[in-house]
Design a binder for these strands. Structure first.
Length: 279
DNA sequence: ATGGCTTTTTATAAAAGA
């Protein structure tokens, strides 16, 4: 079974790329972020045609998350408990978190599909050090981490996937010196990301990738051809999920060409359960 | 050079991204 996550930076602008990606890599489940589409304009027909069930949540042109699955899609949850909102007087809980349970059935060939509890997450950017959005980002991550331990203790393997907007290691950016005074690499952000790891989650992709593997390259300054990127998109799994993982990669090809998102998809390969392993 | 790119909107300038 293959599960992927991708910040598409507008789903409607890239729906053909998404369809090609699903086919090319034989992806069973895809978590999307920054769909930038309100629910009433979501291109659900495209997923129907491709044979995927789809859950989505978008309030306006900002943010937006979705989960597509061709191995079942159940118990969809919009937002996590106590998810912080954004705004002065009446904070709005933005479209940044969508949970669903996928898999759990049997394939046509009789092999078992692992059952997985999945969250598609789009962590607030933070904007600038000292900006209220940074406080929002930190509260958002710490609140999420406050629930992660309990979720990870459930029987169903858990994975939090998405754009975390934090580069946990200095080597996760192309030049740490160039990030002096900028967001994504500050100690408070790394601590907030670390809280998820302290809750028992592990990065299931890093062990399968090179140190200089990135998931994001700025549209400006020719960052992609210069290989000047950031690793900020992750799949954090519970121990039981991590045991299922047999491989992972970043699809760098998706960042190439006209009409690419500034993020590349991250793909996680799962082996079968005891009941059967897919060939 | 207070930008350089890309997307959205009941647009056509401003916000957001990172």
């Amino acid at each position: 079974m293959r599960i992927a996550t991708w910040n598409v930076n507008s789903l409607r602008a890239r729906i053909d790329r998404v369809a090609d990606f699903l086919k090319r890599h034989d992806v069973d489940v895809l978590a999307l972020q920054e769909t930038k589409v309100k629910d009433d304009k979501f291109p659900r027909e495209r997923f129907d045609e491709l044979g995927y069930e789809i859950a989505f949540h978008g309030l306006n042109q900002w943010n937006g998350v979705a989960i597509a699955s061709r191995v079942g899609l159940q118990d969809v949850t919009v937002a996590f408990p106590e998810q912080p909102g954004w705004g002065d007087d009446e904070p709005v809980v933005e479209a940044r978190a969508l949970g669903a349970t996928v898999g759990g059935g049997t394939r046509e060939d009789g092999t078992a599909v692992p059952r997985v509890r999945l969250w598609s997450l789009y962590v607030p950017n933070g904007r600038e050090i000292g900006h209220p959005h940074m406080d929002y980002k930190l509260r958002w991550l710490h609140t999420l981490a406050g629930h992660a331990g309990q979720w990870a203790a459930e029987e169903t393997p858990l994975v939090l996937m998405g754009d975390f907007n934090v580069a946990p290691l200095d080597t996760d950016v192309w030049d740490i010196a160039a990030f002096e005074g900028l967001t994504h690499v500050t100690p408070p952000e790394r601590e907030a990301f670390g809280a998820l790891e302290q809750a028992g989650l592990v990065d299931v992709v890093r062990p399968h990738t090179e140190t200089d593997t990135y998931t994001y390259w700025d549209y400006q300054q020719l960052r992609f051809p210069k290989r000047q990127g950031m690793r900020i998109d992750f799949a954090l799994g519970s121990p039981s999920f991590a045991e299922l993982v047999t491989g992972a990669f970043v699809d760098r090809e998706e960042r190439k060409g006209k009409g690419a998102s500034d993020h590349a998809p991250v793909v996680v390969e799962l082996g079968g359960s005891e009941a059967g392993t897919r060939a």
